[in-house]
Design a protein around this nucleic acid. Structure first.
Lengths: 140, 140
DNA sequence: TTGCATATTTGAACTCATTACAAATTTATA
DNA sequence: TATAAATTTGTAATGAGTTCAAATATGCAA
C-alpha cells in the first residue's frame, strides 16, 4: 500500500484514490487483466469510478513506464504491472497467460540492425501444462 | 502466380479468383498489412470483393497455416504471409514493421516449462534506423 | 444440358474495445 | 474564500472485426 504510493510518486503521479485503487488491483492480481476486468473489480471498491478513468489511468501508467500493454489475444489489450521485464506464454485452450523467464543474450542488446530498441515483446503460444494434463486424462 | 495456386491447393483451398487475388497481394506486399489495407488494394483489381470476404479469407489462410496474424500495434491485426518463421521490429515513430532474423536456441524448443509451444512471437519496439537518421538531421 | 446440392461471396446490421470530448467535480494555490 | 488547474465522469462516437441470411457461383449426377 505504502510502497504503491511511493511507486506513483517516483514517476510524478499524484496518488489519488482512483489511481491508487487501480494500481493496487494490478499489484494484487498478476493475471494480465483487460481494462474491463480491472473496471469490474475496482468498481466494487470505488463504486463511482468510470471506465474512462480506468482507460485514462492505464494510459498514464504506460506513459510513465510502470505498466506494460500486452498485445497477445488480438481482441483486447492485457495490462501487466511488471517490476522485472519478462516474457509470456498464452494458452490457446484456456486463455491463461503465464509469465516466463527467458534468458537470451539478444534481449540484452540496445540496438538491433541499427534500430533503437525500447521494448522487447516475446510470447509463446500453444497449450499449457494444465490443459495438456486434462487432454491426457480425457483419453483414459 | 502459378506457385500461389499450388500453395493454396497444397492446403486444400480451392484457388478461387478472390482467394488468389488476396494471396497475390500478400505475396507482392510484405508490408504486414491490415485487413483494411488488403481490401483497399485488392478491390482495385476485384471491384466486387467485400470486406467480409477479406476477413473470411484471412481466417481461412490462418487456419491452414499459410498466414500469420501479428498483434503488435494493439489497434488492429497485421497479416504476414510468412514462408520462413521470423521476428519483427515495430517503429513507434513511423509505424513500419521490419522483418528480423533472430537466432536463439530457445526458439528451437518444442516445450517450455511443460507448455507445448505452437507459435513464437517476438517483436522489438523502438525507433527504426531511418527515423533515427531523420532525428539526427533535425539537430543541424 | 438441366436440376440440385454445396461452396463461396456479399452487404447490412451488429458487437465490443477504445477514444473523444465537454461538463462536473475535486484539489491546489494565491 | 476565490480562482485556476487537475482529475473524474458519462455520453456519444469511432472503427476493427463478426454474424447472418440472402445471393451467386460452382460441382456433379442424371
Amino acid at each position: 500500500m505504502q510502497n504503491l504510493k511511493k511507486i506513483l510518486e517516483n514517476v510524478e503521479i499524484k496518488p489519488t484514490y482512483e489511481w491508487l485503487s487501480i494500481l493496487q488491483y494490478l499489484d494484487k492480481n498478476h493475471n494480465h487483466p483487460t481494462a474491463a476486468m480491472i473496471f469490474d473489480e475496482v468498481v466494487k471498491k470505488v463504486p463511482t469510478i468510470s471506465k474512462t478513468t480506468v482507460y485514462n489511468s492505464l494510459k498514464l501508467f504506460m506513459k510513465k513506464g510502470i505498466v506494460t500493454p500486452l498485445y497477445i489475444t488480438g481482441s483486447e489489450v492485457r495490462y501487466d504491472f511488471a517490476q522485472k521485464p519478462h516474457h509470456h506464454f498464452f494458452c490457446e485452450e484456456c486463455g491463461k497467460i503465464y509469465d516466463l523467464e527467458v534468458e537470451c543474450p539478444i534481449f540484452k542488446q540496445k540496438y538491433f540492425h541499427g534500430h533503437l530498441i525500447r521494448q522487447q515483446h516475446v510470447y509463446f503460444r500453444g497449450i499449457c501444462k494444465d490443459c495438456l494434463k486434462k487432454e491426457n486424462k480425457a483419453h483414459h
